[in-house]
Design a binder for these strands. Structure first.
Lengths: 204, 204
DNA sequence: GGGATAAACGGACTTTACCCCGCTTACTAT
DNA sequence: ATAGTAAGCGGGGTAAAGTCCGTTTATCCC
């Protein structure tokens, strides 16, 4: 009888003021980040500098890590576009294996460029960075694996493990010291390692 | 002239009372853990229940995560013994590739059994779990890779990536939900995935 | 426009990890 | 034994994350 004005499951979009505040907070956060680094960013500080109440900050982002996840999602937008509809080898219209290699290269570059934010986006008390962060990566890898003829391999598990091999090093394992020596070189090595790993993992 | 009574670099062992307190704190922590779970464990609570000052808790373990790292190190002792001098295929006197597979199986089992502690041992503000945690795993994998004839592969990087593939899923990627369905089945799948991944990654 | 309603807001409050510092106590060398 | 000393201890103090609730305001429908 009545058309569903509030489609259940879709939690109704943010109010205009809320959306405005979110943007303002993200911008302010970026400023503070550039000036003082991620670990110096406090919720109180952010709220004050943005001229908003602390409650607002938490209502928008839920948790401290949530802010960094939002920043990361933001940076990730264009990257996602490239993957979903950009030119080969990253986008469609390329061999799945090539796309997989290209995706790894791009994602490593991305994580490398934003590793401070990405680290801060990890929420200790939470499973995976709840945001778009890794699940998307995993889903994409899973999808590409589906297009490759593997032997008797569990593709869901392989996807999880490859995802971990991809961002584990930067999110968990490599210490600041490991990177301090020569970061760009490390990036190259990780990319080459990924390429070789994927090639080896994906032949029957 | 004077013999080095305090060999520099070796920070002089814990005093007897300190060692006693460390053990008592670990035991108390285990009790509380069993009763209430990891996230319910607070430093004040632990100190009070142990009948010690809060300062002591922090002096022993440095940080909240440090307690869980210590608990994990403790559990890991016997596991390490098996690896270093136990029977094949985990211990020496087995083919390196077999040892690698066996190590992964054992470590997945270990992480699975202690995943709550392992998660809590992650220190958001720190690179890798500073304790013995992962570096040891990585070193062992690196060592085994050194005994395997790989093609033109960077063994240090492969070690990092395999380590990530090994504990990334349990430490970061798999949510409580992913495990809730059927944890033992997930463990089996991860082990098989590891076996197949390693076999594929390690042939020229 | 105008009223109803739920979302959003601010900021005080609570909780908890972590720091600090004055006092105490286990070790060490004579 | 004993004096000297550095490690250890307790617990109050600080800072920052996260919660709550009374008030304000955007949005929807008429």
């Amino acid at each position: 009888m009545d058309g569903p004005l509030l489609p259940l499951g879709v939690p109704r979009a943010e109010r205009a003021d809320a959306a405005r505040n979110r943007l303002h907070l993200l911008a302010t956060a970026r400023e503070m980040l550039a000036e003082d680094g991620a670990d110096r960013l406090t919720m109180d500080g952010l709220a004050e500098r943005a001229g908003l109440g602390k409650g607002t900050v938490f209502r928008r982002f839920g948790t401290r890590a949530g802010i960094f996840q939002a920043l990361l999602d933001d940076e990730e937008q264009q990257f996602q576009q490239q993957v979903l509809s950009g030119p080969p080898p990253l986008g469609p219209d390329a061999d799945a294996l090539d796309r997989l290699v290209a995706y790894g290269r791009a994602r490593i570059g991305f994580l490398f460029a934003h590793r401070d934010i990405a680290r801060a986006a990890l929420d200790g008390s939470q499973a995976v960075p709840a945001g778009t962060e890794t699940p998307l990566s995993r889903m994409h890898i899973r999808m590409l694996l589906g297009q490759i003829r593997l032997g008797a391999v569990d593709p869901d598990i392989l996807a999880v493990q490859l995802t971990a091999a991809l961002d584990g090093p930067l999110l968990l394992h490599l210490s600041a010291d490991d990177l301090a020596v020569d970061a760009p070189r490390m990036e190259t090595r990780l990319v080459q390692g990924w390429q070789s790993l994927v090639h080896r993992a994906c032949r029957p």
